[in-house]
Design a protein around this nucleic acid. Structure first.
Lengths: 349, 349
DNA sequence: TTGAAAGCGCTAACAA
DNA sequence: TTGTTAGCGCTTTCAA
């Protein structure tokens, strides 16, 4: 009788060896595949002896589970994807690290996609991400284009937008108001007697919101803006140096400058040091972000601080609640959390 | 007759709607599922009319492919994973950006996992990565632990290690010799007449290699090392400030310091500015990495530059060659590329 | 506590 | 150019 045998193994050409599967482990352990699955993921449902047998088989075969198959079968990936513009900008680092930490504790893996400050790229990236069916998505910033918002909503994957404020997030939101942060910066300068204010801002939308808020506050206080310089994102110290130079060329009497990032502010401080402009006496400088060098510049940098770590933690919590609680059919509440910001007063302003 | 009907749709409770599948698209377009698959991925094999019908069906249903299923069926994920310690360290940014760029052109997605400078974490992360069966893996640095190396080798996924040199990479390697870079730094100082050298280095293995090379070169030139200060990774400007302070306390006559990162070097420059130490007259400062602020510090920073972009591009190429050429059984050659480094002379040394 | 059967959504291989 | 069939490796559901 000619039973349909499993294909004879082809001569084990290097690189052609098949991956070990759950079935291989099951065969070696003398149990059914499903039992191996249980022993691996729900050991409390399996007798200790069987768990041990499975463990030994797994080790001896060097079995590595295939999460594509697992994810497909269970429609759970234990994966959360974060989208940030680029790693050259450390702005989101603390958020991302906290996110990873918090998710890991609950058994979720974090992976990162880079959108590169391009809306088109971001859309393609999010598409690719949705295609891999993560259990959650965290966006650095807001989803701005309508198509992106729609795609995210349709995917019915929990989404947390961050680092900004909006009354209509796609799903959930943990952030702060960039506009109010800008306003606070202007008010701070004005309260400290500055009257010729300048702006040095990056080209992204969050920086633009800070700029808008700053200008609005100045206007409503009757203080004119002496200059606005917009540079590309991601910002660098070099842009800060040339930016402040341009601003001072146009109006040498500027007495305060708000930078949309600490990198820009660092550049301003360096330019001031190089050209002997007294900071803060002649020029007050405020940055944004409180990066890891900002307390150590010379003079130390006054800046707007945001608790990125908290944003990451809370984003993880929002996500986990939604994921784990998601089985019942209740319409999930749209969640918004404003973590605020505060100005750290140091020597530069 | 009671044909087994597809389950009646449950009342469409919010959040319970099923994702659209290839079958839905096929039904709407009036073709077989495989034809939809072809229209989407290999349109040249399908008549233009059919492609168009499929496109319309896809759009009208808002179909998003499930890459878990696709990957499982084809054992191709079109995904490359990069592993870096943390995004707070911009060292690898250019490499990662170039990698992404280059892979995208060939239709591969790049995603990033964070290992957080912990060997245990890195192992867990790589495990999780292997479980998702990417087509390639890029490591920032070398795989150091034996278990990690073995796991990577067993997975038979193309791997590129980077940013360091070794004669025995797990698979492929694009990098440079950190030890030689350290040596070059010492030789540069000595050639410029410096005789009391100090080291300010981060706690990771690559920084350690640079430190070793530096000390070896000094020794063989008969120049003593006046001090070594080791700080934690990732390094900050603040660590640079306190580090140089400690070094100078121990030996006030140090005339040159090599920092294992530009962040540390920035801190040294800031401390020098704050305490009126003349750079480079009294103290020469050299960094490592040529970060985006290094040309704009005051004074501008002499540093060891590595072409991270090239590392990224070449790593992508290695990977793509291995992936696309991987079908035939030839034993693939282990590839090693040394992209070198060079010292950029600026004002600080 | 364990197992058998039936898919998850897609594509490779073969057939028409 | 299009379709049929048979899985990919795992987990769900139901049964024992």
């Amino acid at each position: 009788m000619n039973l349909p045998l499993p294909k004879p193994k082809p001569a084990a050409r290097r690189g052609t060896r098949r991956d070990m599967t759950l079935d291989d482990v099951a065969r070696l352990a003398g149990v059914a595949p499903i039992t191996v699955s249980r022993a691996l993921h729900k050991p409390h449902l399996v007798s200790p002896g069987t768990v041990e047998k499975v463990r030994i088989a797994v080790d001896s075969l060097g079995y590595v589970p295939n999460l594509l198959a697992g994810g497909l079968a269970s429609s759970k990936s234990r994966l959360v994807m974060a989208v940030i513009p680029t790693t050259i900008n450390p702005t989101f680092s603390e958020m991302v690290d906290a996110l990873r930490e918090e998710l890991l504790e609950s058994g979720y893996q974090l992976m990162i996609g880079l959108s590169g400050y391009s809306d088109a790229r971001e859309e393609d990236l999010v598409n690719a991400i949705i295609s891999r069916r993560p259990d959650g998505i965290v966006l650095a910033g807001l989803a701005r284009s309508a198509t992106l918002r729609k795609r995210l909503a349709n995917a019915r994957i929990p989404v947390v937008e961050t680092w900004d404020m909006s009354t209509k997030p796609v799903d959930m939101l943990v952030g702060f108001s960039n506009r109010r942060a800008g306003r606070a910066a202007a008010e701070y300068f004005i309260a400290h007697g500055r009257r010729r204010l300048a702006l040095l801002v990056g080209g992204d939308s969050r920086a633009a919101a800070r700029s808008t808020g700053f200008q609005a506050a100045a206007k409503s206080a009757g203080v004119a803006i002496a200059g606005v310089e917009v540079v590309a994102s991601p910002t660098t110290a070099g842009m800060g140096r040339t930016g402040i130079r341009r601003l001072l060329e146009r109006d040498p009497l500027i007495d305060a400058v708000f930078c949309s990032s600490d990198q820009l502010a660092l550049g301003v401080l360096l330019e001031a040091a190089a050209t002997s402009i007294a900071v803060p006496e002649r020029l007050a400088v405020m940055g944004f972000g409180n990066l890891n060098f900002s307390a150590d510049t010379w003079p130390s940098l006054t800046t707007v601080a945001v608790d990125g770590e908290r944003i990451g933690r809370e984003a993880a919590r929002f996500l986990l609640e939604r994921i784990e609680g998601g089985q019942d059919g209740e319409a999930p509440a749209s969640r918004i959390l404003d973590v605020g910001f505060h100005i750290i007063t140091r020597d530069s302003a």
